[in-house]
Computed example of a mutant assay.
Amino acid sequence: MKWANHPAGDARDAWSSTADARTLTLLVAGGPFRIDVDDESVVLCDFGDYVVFGPDQAHRWQALGEATAPAGFRP
């Protein structure tokens, strides 16, 4: 598992998807951290908040505040 520290405003603006795996995003510290999955937005605000999405679901994200979250973890 890789960890990433995201300063406020850091974002992946381009839509991305993974064809062969589910993806887990977990807020470890800081926040809020917004994940857009297909046509829905989820805002992670508290330690331990998470979102899981399946293969072929387009996603992008933005750190609304300074946040630490895993990068590249696929269960």
Rank of each mutant, 00 (worst) to 15 (best):
Y50H: 13
G54F: 04
L64F: 03
V37N: 04
G31P: 12
L26T: 08
Q62E: 15
E66C: 03
G48S: 07
R74E: 05
T18Q: 14
P70L: 04
H6P: 00
W15G: 08
V51H: 08
A58F: 04
L27P: 05
R60A: 10
G54M: 04
G65Y: 12
A63D: 04
D13E: 15
F47Y: 09
S17Y: 09
A14H: 10
Q57R: 15
L24I: 14
T23S: 09
D10K: 11
D20Q: 10
D46T: 08
L24K: 05
T18G: 10
R34Q: 15
V43W: 06
G30P: 14
V37T: 12
F47P: 10
G31W: 12
G72I: 06
A4T: 13
A58G: 14
D20S: 12
S41I: 01
G9W: 05
Y50C: 12
C45Q: 13
G48W: 01
Y50L: 13
A14V: 09
F33T: 08
A69Y: 08
L64T: 02
W15I: 01
R34N: 12
D13H: 06
G30L: 07
D10G: 01
Q57L: 02
P70M: 05
D49Q: 07
P75M: 07
Q62I: 15
V37M: 10
S41W: 05
T23Y: 03
R34D: 13
P32C: 02
H6N: 11
D49V: 04
A11Y: 03
V42C: 02
E66N: 14
T18N: 15
P75W: 12
R60I: 09
I35Y: 05
D36K: 12
R60V: 08
A11T: 08
V51S: 04
R12P: 00
D56S: 11
A8F: 03
S41Y: 03
V37K: 06
A29K: 15
W15S: 08
D56L: 09
G30H: 10
A4R: 15
L24T: 14
A63W: 02
L44S: 04
D20P: 00
A19D: 11
H59W: 08
A19Q: 08
A19M: 01
P55T: 02
A4F: 08
G54V: 01
A11F: 04
V52H: 02
A8I: 05
G54N: 07
P70T: 02
T68S: 14
